[in-house]
């Protein structure tokens, strides 16, 4: 029982990071129906910026480094959308998807050339250690608590932006019907840029969380990116609560599989889950299928 609880807690910690990445996928998909393959690389760039800030500028508070990372990842995403995605918006879908996958490979290789392919580590931020719940036999690391707590704060902030601000209303309108939104006087290009910015800055924050617990390397975005995408599909792509639930579920399932079976098949399980969801309920837990109208 205590073993199970421990896997559950580890799963929640990883899952909250998947959820934050999945939110970016799902927001972009909701607004322009594009799978942004480069999303995992925004997380990688955020991690490198965070590591760079903390390593080079000694004494920078973690909060400042986190904000810098989020800004950097967000601005990078705005740039990518402007240069590589926007000109292709009216072309057949396959071209913008190609551009997205190419941007992903480009960023990985730029990362490799600029930062080197060896892993970089974050300077220690917390006292190492964990809180033990003796009666249950479960340990929660300080960094896990930090990540869980901050993820909740970021998700709450996102919810406020989307539901309580003017730009949030514009985002919701654009995702419902982009042409109608433009006719109502919404600057949809600005809304799309803003969506990319918000989504990627969440990914940038995850980059810092990831870097603090593991290490930072140019290919670090690939696996969490894929897992988070599966999370977004599981929750129902386009749905924000779906992405959060999906992320937590994927994190927990991965940890249970790794714990009880073998960590070798952790990635394979994510993929099998994707195929299962697509076969059984392609709209995901909370998604809705939009009818195609001629």
């Amino acid at each position: 029982m205590s073993e199970f609880l421990q896997f559950l807690i580890n799963g929640l910690a990883v899952g909250s990071m998947y959820a934050l990445i999945a939110l970016g996928y799902t927001m972009v998909y909701g607004i322009i129906q594009l799978i942004n393959f480069a999303h995992g690389e925004f997380m990688m760039m955020g991690a490198f910026v965070g590591a760079f800030t903390l390593n080079r500028l000694q004494g920078t508070p973690l909060a400042v480094a986190l904000v810098i990372s989020m800004l950097a990842a967000g601005l990078l995403a705005v740039l990518v959308e402007l240069v590589a995605y926007r000109p292709l918006r009216r072309q057949p879908k396959i071209f913008v998807l190609t551009a997205a996958i190419a941007v992903s490979v480009l960023l990985q290789n730029l990362g490799r050339i600029v930062f080197g392919s060896s892993a970089v580590s974050f300077p220690a931020q917390f006292p190492q250690g964990s809180i033990g719940l003796e009666s249950l036999g479960v340990w929660v690391e300080y960094s896990q608590l930090f990540v869980l707590g901050l993820s909740l704060v970021l998700m709450a902030a996102l919810w406020l932006i989307v539901h309580k601000t003017k730009i949030g209303a514009a985002m919701r309108a654009t995702s419902q019907d982009i042409d109608a939104a433009r006719l109502m006087g919404i600057n949809t290009n600005l809304v799309i840029s803003f969506t990319f910015f918000i989504g990627a800055s969440l990914a940038g924050a995850v980059g810092v969380f990831y870097g603090m617990q593991y290490s930072v390397d140019p290919l670090m975005g690939v696996q969490p990116g894929l897992a988070a995408f599966v999370a977004a599909v599981l929750g129902g792509i386009g749905s924000l609560p779906g992405a959060m639930i999906g992320g937590l579920l994927i994190g927990i399932i991965e940890n249970l599989v790794a714990g009880y079976l073998s960590s070798t098949y952790q990635g394979a399980i994510t993929f099998v889950l994707l195929i299962l969801v697509l076969s059984i309920k392609p709209t995901g837990l909370l998604g809705r299928m939009a009818p195609v109208k001629v």
Binding site: F37, I101, L226, F229, L274, P282
Partner: peptide, 17 residues
Amino acid sequence: RLAGDYLAIATLGFSII
């Protein structure tokens, strides 16, 4: 049966796995 993007992610996942 689904929109084309799902095939992309399924094949991507397949090749990595």
